[in-house]
Design a protein around this nucleic acid. Sequence first.
DNA 1: GCGAGCAACGTAAACGTTTTCATCAAAGCT
DNA 2: AGCTTTGATGAAAACGTTTACGTTGCTCGC
Lengths: 347, 347
Amino acid sequence: MTVTIKDVAREAKVSVASVSRALNGAGGVTTATEKRIREAAARLRYVPHGAARSLITRRTHTIGALLPDLHGEFFSELIRGIDQKARAHGLHLLVSSAHDGVDDAAAALRAMQGRVDGILILSSRVDEAFLKANLPQDLPAVLLNSPLEDGTHAVLNIDNFAGTYAMVRHLLGVGHERIAFVTGPKDNFDAQQREQGFRAAMAEFMPNASPRIVAGDFTERSGLRAGRELLAAKSRPQAVFAANDMMAVGCLQAFREAGLDVPGDIALAGFDDIPIARYVAPPLSTVRVRIADLGRNAMELLADLIERPGPSAASVHTLGCDIVVRDSCGAHLARNASGGNRRSSDP
Amino acid sequence: MTVTIKDVAREAKVSVASVSRALNGAGGVTTATEKRIREAAARLRYVPHGAARSLITRRTHTIGALLPDLHGEFFSELIRGIDQKARAHGLHLLVSSAHDGVDDAAAALRAMQGRVDGILILSSRVDEAFLKANLPQDLPAVLLNSPLEDGTHAVLNIDNFAGTYAMVRHLLGVGHERIAFVTGPKDNFDAQQREQGFRAAMAEFMPNASPRIVAGDFTERSGLRAGRELLAAKSRPQAVFAANDMMAVGCLQAFREAGLDVPGDIALAGFDDIPIARYVAPPLSTVRVRIADLGRNAMELLADLIERPGPSAASVHTLGCDIVVRDSCGAHLARNASGGNRRSSDP
DNA sequence: GCGAGCAACGTAAACGTTTTCATCAAAGCT
DNA sequence: AGCTTTGATGAAAACGTTTACGTTGCTCGC
């Protein structure tokens, strides 16, 4: 029932070869016959069989995205960016999300085998051995937010280090000296980098201070716990910097419980700029990650790898982030808010 | 240098037919030879070429999801539900999102032609003519949140009507009599149904009242405007029900501007239960849509259509929603909160 | 012990493209 | 005019599977 290239050929009174050439713009056909062929194809509503085509072409015009169990804005923005660029390159997007187990991800990766021209991987669980075992070495791949720099795959990371660094500088500039930090999960790459950025900035700007660092795990509850813990200490920090916004929201709740005014009594900052950050009271100062850009850049990188493959595959890129100053950090109270690079405020 | 079925056949010293049979579990092979074949395949890291397979099988084991320009939780939850069920059925997920123009969506739909076994469509822009023109009539399809009941496609809708209806009943039960409604965009199907639900409930329970209805467009700004407009009127409503949460947040801001206490001076409710709803002050009472369930059910429906195609394709299903009572509606103030079905509160 | 039946296995066609190669006509060159 | 070049077109091979159809050898019932 489906109409094939043969039907078009018959309809246009040419050979299948000419139809193929005409429709692919490969040249070698008169404009007259091309027109006739195009008309015949349109009349018959011919649409080439993708599988047959990619069987011989060895190109699927599809890229795969292997993603962990993401939620909310992060997921949608990432896909938005990827999809946008993919479409620009004429590529389809095969999504496989919600992989938390390693074997789960491995299965998904293998299932994508041969269905995609390239692959985008975002997962904390992948290490070098995993990739070696499950990723065909000739399949173009871009790793997102990965600690791996094995020199065989392209990697695109968020510049967590610079982001925290800039935020610390900003907080110091506002006048806060005793800054405490709430970390993310120990095994999370982003969390590690953010902690390092914090330590580095403090070490540089306040070499004599030994800032308080309490453990969190990126959840609101852990933020609440951390906030309480910080208040329980004898000397209260002047500012608290949480490694992500959800924990900052938790801290906020702890401070509210204690009857503290934010930022009057204690300043607060987060990381990620999730939508909620804008709506809590006071609005949360944070570090914005342009997630759609992350997706876009990753896709661009991958498209490049696909279009001209070669040994230049290995490369490491970083995507900067901006600090966004709202009320919770106290900058709008301070007489002169100096310091901090690439700052921005909501309109 | 990819390894094909022939390589496996040679390695296992059998014919390609046997390899195919063994690997597909089609029977007709001794357990001994099957074992030998499986081992050979494993040794060679053989993975069948999907395109070649689907060329002859006419099955791609992939379903397409055509989505509009969605944001945040809605998108990610929907995909989560779809992906979960898709995987359970051994299907891959081809996503094409961010289609705002009709021609854009049409192009995407045609591009999916032959790459998918079935398709999931969520778009306010598709009408019957569009589907007729761009959707092959033999391709299984499920329409989400669509007003279409053309008897040719399966449709799965959120029960917006029942949701608003229940919320109105709840608000009345709490003691609010003058309830105003803020509508969504006129051309949005969900918005239309919600408005209808509101009108129906009011007509039934307060037949003599003529409730205030002001226009919004689902944005926070339009909610702010609507809130101001409602306060400007001579008789202030006792409760405002916004057709979605973002507009409710806008209303909240308007009320705050006016120095009103929510819910003391005026009650407020929204629809959707976006994550922000829980974090505004006071927390917003709203109607929860279990979006992941929507995705799951849609996928289940589609899988069914694919597995046993037939004239039974047309069907209309509805997914209920729950009202979640937080502080903004005033139920926690009232002495006895009665009315409202399927209520729930946050733990 | 012998034909029938059956299970295991192999051969080859088919799926719908792209692409190489050959063919052929027209046009350009001397 | 004769030869070469060029450009359009067609025939057929190839891509890697699945599957219908044969072929083989074995078992079973008599």
